[in-house]
Design a protein around this nucleic acid. Structure first.
Length: 469
RNA sequence: GUCCCCAUCGUCUAGAGGCCUAGGACACCAGCCUUUCACGUUGGUAACACGGGUUCGAAUCCCGUUGGGGACGCCA
């Protein structure tokens, strides 16, 4: 049987980094085994689900290169089928109509809490009820939990990550599968959908582990084969608490915004909670080849932005200059920075040097401004301070000197070295004023590269402007 | 509170009873490279939560303790 996995987010918000990793693992596992990877939008909570969230989730997955192999399934559209299965369970005697009102249930729960007893629903009075005696309130359908003496008194789930997990039947109670308004509950809908979609491996967050026991009630009552389960540990914030906005970026699209490359984010996520010896930088292709559920760790892991940045830098340096230039120019345009064809060319020409110095696209864009724009750069404080009267004098001299220089990077380097030697100066004493004049900063790519990329006219203009200013 | 899961450097991890004087990566510190900043490179600090077993031998197996996390809805 072909492997089929699914990622099943609920569209109540943006796709966060934990969900992205779940999607990645599902994708990788399916690819590894030549199967399909699907997307199911769990939108049965109409109050909280929004089309905007659906859009964002799909866009996020697309950005990460994790688009599903088939069109997404919307759980809300499958409600008739969920109800049908619920009725089937009713007919089989595996479920019954329960007429409790939400208020009554709340009262029962409160009473249990007051008595310091764990709340366990008891619906025995509804079982075998004469329909004529039934209350007029609309009933919910509840599935019968296994009784204490069934299955050896406990329910066992063989989890591919967590191992054999067992829970006493005493912990399970009759759960609602169809609400009194006829809509299915999540725990029920998930099972029906996974079954109908022929999902073979359910890979999802750890937070669903205990719910799995309840879902098994539906599988077992319907006589369906349970899929394989793999519950992966959650991702926490740097402080170990549940990941939230205050930890920084958590939405997948936030990372795009902040200049991370999708390949880097995926690689980082892959290494969070999963390991393969000492290898860290793993391409998508390699990941598909080596990904194995058995290698998923069982402990929760923490989000480490510093390490993500490092991964991003590695990927940035491996990305073709042309693509980076395009990304950078887009970001500059978004910042309202104008540039022409010449500027765009300069940015790309300088990209090999620029990208070695950046960890993300935003940083890269910032470092490329001086190359993109025409005319003298905006001076930062340190650069301005470096332009002493002596330095300006030096620049005037250099402008003159460079008029005759051959305009090619290696040649320029020689010229500058010769110049410094003749003047009895250290190269730094020549390079730093030039750097300030040309880039507006004291930190930039090698000055010969900057000169070469800028072109003689532009370079000399900037040098003179700094000398005058 | 009840149930479930987890536990190796600050962080991500390697480790399937002897290969462990516990390895790699990020971060941090120091050196090298160098026209600045990076990149690169060399080295360093730094961990098996604790207590009992089992065993000739335990980071690895078992049991407790402690500490984290998760689930307990007519939410998903």
């Amino acid at each position: 049987m072909s492997v089929r996995t699914r990622f099943a987010p609920s569209p109540t918000g943006y796709l966060h980094i934990g969900g992205a990793r779940t999607a990645l693992f599902n994708f990788l596992f399916a690819r590894r085994h030549g199967g399909q990877y699907l997307l199911r939008i769990e939108d049965t909570d109409r109050q909280r689900s929004t089309p905007e969230a659906v859009r964002q989730i799909i866009e996020s997955l697309d950005w990460l290169g994790l688009s599903p192999d088939e069109p997404p399934v919307f759980q809300s559209q499958r409600e008739p089928r969920h109800a049908e299965v619920a009725r089937e369970l009713l007919a089989k005697g595996s479920a019954y109509l329960a007429y409790d009102t939400p208020e009554e249930l709340a009262a029962m729960r409160a009473a249990a809490e007051a008595a310091k007893r764990p709340f366990k629903y008891d619906g025995s009075r509804w079982i075998g009820l004469d329909p004529a005696q039934a209350p007029s309130t609309p009933p919910a359908i509840r599935i019968k939990a296994p009784r204490l003496d069934e299955r050896g008194g406990e329910t066992v789930v063989k989890d591919l990550v967590q191992g054999e997990v067992r829970v006493g039947n005493a912990e399970l109670d009759d759960m609602i599968i169809l609400r009194s308004d006829g809509t299915p509950t999540y725990l029920h809908a998930v099972v029906v959908d996974d079954h109908d979609m022929a999902i073979t491996h359910v890979i999802r967050g750890d937070d669903h582990l205990t719910n799995t026991f309840r879902q098994c009630m539906v599988y077992d009552a319907m006589g369906w084969h349970r899929p394989h389960f793999a519950h992966i540990p959650l991702i926490h914030g740097a402080d170990g608490a549940k990941l939230s906005k205050r930890h920084g970026a958590v939405g997948a699209l936030d990372f795009r915004e902040q200049g991370f490359l999708p390949e880097a984010v995926c690689n980082y996520l892959l290494r969070l909670g999963w390991g393969h010896g000492d290898t860290e930088i793993i391409s998508r292709e390699a990941a598909i080849r080596i990904f194995d559920i058995a290698d998923i760790g069982r402990a929760a892991s923490r989000m480490d932005y510093a390490k993500l940045s490092h991964f991003n830098g590695v990927y940035l340096r491996a990305t073709p200059d042309e693509r980076l230039a395009r990304e950078v120019l887009e970001r500059l345009a978004k910042r309202g920075i104008s540039f022409g064809t010449r500027g765009a060319e300069r940015v790309e020409a300088l990209m090999p040097e620029l990208k070695a110095r950046a960890r993300d696209l935003e940083e890269l864009a910032g470092a490329a401004i001086f190359a993109a724009q025409e005319g003298p750069p905006v001076m930062d404080q340190k650069a301005a301070a470096a332009l002493t009267p002596e330095a300006k004098e030096r620049l005037r001299d250099l402008a003159q000197f460079l008029t005759d220089a051959p305009w090619e990077r290696a040649e320029l380097e020689h010229w500058l070295r010769d110049y410094a030697e003749v003047k009895g100066l250290k190269l730094g004493a020549v390079a730093q004023p030039l750097r300030a004049a040309l880039t507006g900063s004291l930190q930039s790519p090698p000055i010969d590269a900057v000169l070469a990329a800028l072109g003689r006219t532009e370079a000399v203009d900037r040098i003179l402007a700094a000398a005058e200013g």
